[in-house]
Design a protein around this nucleic acid. Sequence first.
DNA 1: CTGTTAGCGCCTTCAC
DNA 2: GTGAAGGCGCTAACAG
Lengths: 344, 344
Amino acid sequence: MKSDTLTKKATIKEVAQHAGVSTATVSRVIAGGNNVSDYLRDRVAEAVKALEYSPSQLGRNLRSQKTNLIGVIVCDIENPFFTNILRAIQDILIRQNYVLLTTNSDEDIELEHIHLKMLRANRVSGLILVPAASDYSQYQSLLQDMTVVAIDRAPKNLKTDTVTVDNLLAVKNATRYLMDLGHRRIGYLTGDLTISTWRTRYDGFLAAHRETGREIDPLLVQKGNFTKPDGHKAMAQLIDLPDPPTAVISGNNTLTLGALQAIHAHSIRVPDELSIIGFDDTDWATSMQPPLSVIAQPTYEIGRRAAELLLERMDNPGLPLRHIVLDTELILRASTGPAKIVRI
Amino acid sequence: MKSDTLTKKATIKEVAQHAGVSTATVSRVIAGGNNVSDYLRDRVAEAVKALEYSPSQLGRNLRSQKTNLIGVIVCDIENPFFTNILRAIQDILIRQNYVLLTTNSDEDIELEHIHLKMLRANRVSGLILVPAASDYSQYQSLLQDMTVVAIDRAPKNLKTDTVTVDNLLAVKNATRYLMDLGHRRIGYLTGDLTISTWRTRYDGFLAAHRETGREIDPLLVQKGNFTKPDGHKAMAQLIDLPDPPTAVISGNNTLTLGALQAIHAHSIRVPDELSIIGFDDTDWATSMQPPLSVIAQPTYEIGRRAAELLLERMDNPGLPLRHIVLDTELILRASTGPAKIVRI
DNA sequence: CTGTTAGCGCCTTCAC
DNA sequence: GTGAAGGCGCTAACAG
C-alpha cells in the first residue's frame, strides 16, 4: 500500500558508511568542531548532501536528556492579545533552535491539566503558561520538575517567574481620566473575579473611586463571563438602567466587542451619550467609528520578556524568582471625546 | 547552583526496580495489555504512582520510529482566520494524543523554509501547511517524505491533499449581489495576485463582470500588499478618485480593517455613500456600525477537515490525492444596505 | 585526528 | 505469564 518512492530519512550511520568514516566523525563534522581533517570533513559534507541528511532531534534529545521543545499553553488562542504574545515568544525562541508546542486550554482547568501532562510526557524543556486555574496547589508535583514562566496572570501557589502588567494602575488611571472628564456614573464590565487579572483590574476601578471619595453604584458593575455575548448582555443591562452610565470601561477586548454590539443596537451615540474605554489595543480598535480609546498592554514585550526569562532560568535554575510587571498605556481616541486633561 | 529538590523524572527502569519486575512487564502494563498477572499489574501500578512515572515520548518516538508531533505552519498567527483553524486542528488531533508544533511563517518564504527544516529535523509525523510560497518545485525533496495537507492555498507543484474554499464563486456572487443592488462602479481590494487565494478571488470579480458584460475600470482595482495600512491606502485612493466607487469588496479581513479606517477618516457614510463587503466573518464584523456584510469562510471546518485528511493519510499513504473545496457564505448585514434581492 | 563503545528510555521479539 | 536482550539515532568518553 505504501508509495514505493517513499524515501526514509537518512541516519548518521548511513552517512558514515557513505563517507567511509565512523559515526563519531560525522557527528563531529555536524557539530562544526575543528577536530576533523579537511579531507574527511569534505567527504562527510558530500555524503550529507547526497543523502539529504538532517540529524534527528529525537536521537539528540534522547541522548542529551533534554529537548528543543518549549510548551506554550494559552487560554484562548483566538484572542489577538495572546496571538501577539505567541508571535513574540516564537520570534525569540526560534533563534535558539527551540520549537513551540502550542496548546489552547480554552480557559478549562481540566483541559489545561491534560495539556500539562502531555507536555510533560513530551519532556518540554520549558513552559510558558497563561494559567487557567486560580490555585495551583494541586499541580505542584506536576510542575515542580518543569521550568515555567507564567504570563498575564499570577494565580495562587504557582511559584514561578511571571510577566504581568500593572492592571490596577491601568484601570485606576482610566477611571480617573473619565472622572476628570466629568463622568459621575461609570460602568464597568468584568469577567470572573477569581482570576487574578480580572480581580486586579477591578481593584483599580475600586481604587479610583476610593481615592476620589466616591461610592460605586453596584448596578454599574457587570460581573459575568468573558465572551462576546456576555459583553453584549452586560452592556445592554447597563443601557437599560433607569439611570444609565455616561461612560463605561470594558475589562478585555472580547467584552468590548460585545458591548459595542449592544451600544449600536440601542443607537447610543459615542461619545456624546456614552464614552467607552476598551482593553487591549487590537487591530480593530482604530477601525471603529469612532476609534476606540483603550488601555494598551505591551503584548509583544510580554512575550519577549517571558521567553527571555525562560531561557535564563533554563540556563540557570538557581536564579531567584523574578516578577516582571510592565506598564500599560492609556491611548485616547474619539470614543472618549476630545481629550480634556492629560494625566501623568 | 541547581535546586537540590529537583527531582528527575522516573524512567521505566526505576519503576521496574521499584516493583521488582522487568521493564518489559512495566511496558506491558502501561500498554494496558492483559498478558500480565493481576498481582504484578498491581505492583507496577503502585510503583508508577509512587514515582509519578509518565513514559517518555522521546523514548517511545525513537523506538517506534514515529512521533506524536504534528507540525502546523501558518502565514499569520495573528489573523483570526487562521487561529480559528488552529483551534479546530488542535481539537481533532489532541484526542489522538498528537501535539502541535505551531510555527508562523509570516508570509516569508525563507522563514517558511527554515521552519520546514526544523519540523523535519523534529520528525513530525505530519504537517498542515498554509503555503507561503507560490511554487514548491524547489521544496520537493524536503517535503517528499512528509505527510502534508495544504490549506487555504493551492500553490504550484505542491502535490498534497488540500482543503480550500471556493473563492471564485464567493467573490463572483458577492460582486453580482452588489451589481443587482444597482452598483455600477465596484471597487476591489486585493493582495499579491501570485498567491492562489488572492488570484482566485480576483478571478471571481472578473467573472462577475464578464458574465454581465461589463467592463472593469482598472482604477477601481487596488492591488498591493495585505496589511492594514495597505488597506487604508488602497481605500483612500479609491475614495479620491474623480469618479469613486459606490461599493467595494475587500479581499481579506486585514485589508477590510484598513479600508474602514480610510472610510471613517473621510467621513464616508456606509452604506448610503458606499457599500462594503468584507472577507471572513470575524469577531468584530458584527461590532461595527453598521455591521459588516461579509463573505464567510467555514474556518473551523477547514481545520477539522485538514486534520482528518492528515490522519487518514498517515494511516494510509497510498490514498489518492484529495482536494476538498468548501463553500463560503455571503452574510448580508447593514453595510450593504437593506437586502433587495436574494440570490440563490 | 579518528574509531570503538556505551547508553539515553522505550518496546518487542525471543526464550523459558 | 515473565524476563533477557537488542536496537531505534545520536554523542561523549575513551583509546589509539
